[in-house]
Structure formats: C-alpha cells, structure tokens
Design a binder for these strands. Structure first.
Lengths: 114, 114
DNA sequence: ATTGCTCCCATCGCCTTGCGAGGTAGAATA
DNA sequence: TATTCTACCTCGCAAGGCGATGGGAGCAAT
C-alpha cells in the first residue's frame, strides 16, 4: 500500500468506522487490519494524531472507560458535526476518485457519481 | 479539491496523460484544467518536481523541441518502464479506492476489482 | 521477584508531497 | 515602453504517514 495514497483519506476512514459505533484506538487498528485482510495496517503514528485532530475539531469526542480488569480504554465517538463533515468528505472523495479515473481511463466512465 | 487527497496520485495522472502522447509542462496543466472543468489546477510547484522525479526514475524521457516562433518547449514522453509502472500503480490505486470504499460503505461492494 | 507477553496509550523526528511565491525569459499585444 | 501570455524552474513551508521509541497495566510462567 502506497503511503502517499493514504494522505487525506484517514479522516474518512476513521469517521466512517466511528459511524458504526464508538471504538478505541487499538480496536480501530485491529479492525482495519482484519477488514483489509492484513493489507493495510493503520499505524499508531498516523492514528493517534489523526484522532486527536478530529477531536480538536469537535468532529469526535472521547471518554475513558474502565473495563472489568480495571484497565482503561479511551473510546472515540462521532459527533453530529463529524457526521456532517463525513458527508462532505465523502462527496469530495468520490469527486477525487472520479477525476483520477477520468485520466486513467480516458475513454471510460467519467461522470460524477457524487 | 483536498490537496492531501492528491498526494501520491500525481504520478498516475501524469503517466496516464503521457500514455496518450508526448506533452509539455504547460500543456499538461492546461489539459488537466480543461478536463476537470477547472476543478483541479495542477500547480507548477507540484508538476515540475514530479516530472523530474519520474524522469530520474526513467519512467519518462524529455526532449526540447523548437517551435516555428523559435521558442523551446520541453516535451515529456512515457518510456516502457513507465508503462509497466503505470499498470502496477493503477492496480494499487484501485485496491486503495476499494479499501476506502469498503469502510465508507460497509454494506456495499468491497471486492478487489484490480 | 523477574521476565516476557499482550493490550493500550502516546510522542518525536524524518520523509515525501503539494502549494504559494518568486524568478527568468522570449513573444505577442497595446 | 509596458503588460500579458507562454513556458520553464526552484525554494521554503505545511501537512500527513511512518518507524522508532517509550510508558504503563494486567497476567502467566519461572
């Protein structure tokens, strides 16, 4: 997986994931790993800064939750503003994909799906 | 257009464009501008370094051509190695797109088209 | 008690890439 | 002469992912 391709898509990934429900960092990494069949390992050095930035922007919120073992986990949940942002980001995403594919396949479909 | 989304996709764009025939820098910018209906302006600060890097990797070659006016243009043409690279990049691209869309639309199609 | 493993958080410096701004220069136009 | 268009290019900056590194809690085996 080309790291440069990932740039800018992480917020979409994160926000989309959190739409399914609150998750904690480690769980996000595991989930991404599983769903991509090991193809993409979301790195901690990318995840946590991204999560913090999303929280600073008030697109997500976080809360610590103590488990039965007594250990703490930091859960992240999407906020209404985050959902709104996701919708806009998704649109931007498909426009972007469409643009690139318009060049990759000049004769192919290049209409705007978003 | 989100600049971060662009990162890593420029080589694909450039190589795809050059597959249609040799082009010079200014022409590439104009072409991209036209085809995207003004949505995406490939910036010089992004284009030329990308072009030079592609050339250093021997994916493309360049040659100066003098016009009737006496002015010179630097044309870039794709090399066999560049075509090979493009094919690999395209595959990587669709895998990447597929991955992101797998998260964006969890219920939707997430199979690997590439 | 010590080692080592898994879980779980996080930061730091590096690298790459796009962008804004700036520079050079010939040709056309006013 | 001055401006604009074409056409090339580079530099410093910002942003984001990555590898490395580190802290710490719980748990099992030695």
């Amino acid at each position: 997986m080309d790291r440069e391709l990932l740039k800018g898509s992480t917020p979409i990934l994160l926000l989309s994931l959190l739409t399914e429900g609150p998750m904690y960092g480690y769980q996000i990494i595991e989930t991404v790993l599983e769903r991509t069949g090991g193809a993409y390992t979301l790195k901690e050095g990318a995840l946590y800064p991204a999560l913090h930035k999303l929280e600073a922007a008030e697109f997500i919120s976080s809360y610590w939750q103590t488990q039965a073992n007594g250990r703490d986990r930091r859960y992240y949940a999407i906020l209404p503003a985050g959902s709104t942002f996701l919708v806009a980001k998704k649109k931007q995403w498909s426009q972007f994909v469409n643009m690139v594919e318009g060049f990759v396949t000049p004769g192919g479909s290049a209409d705007s799906k978003g």
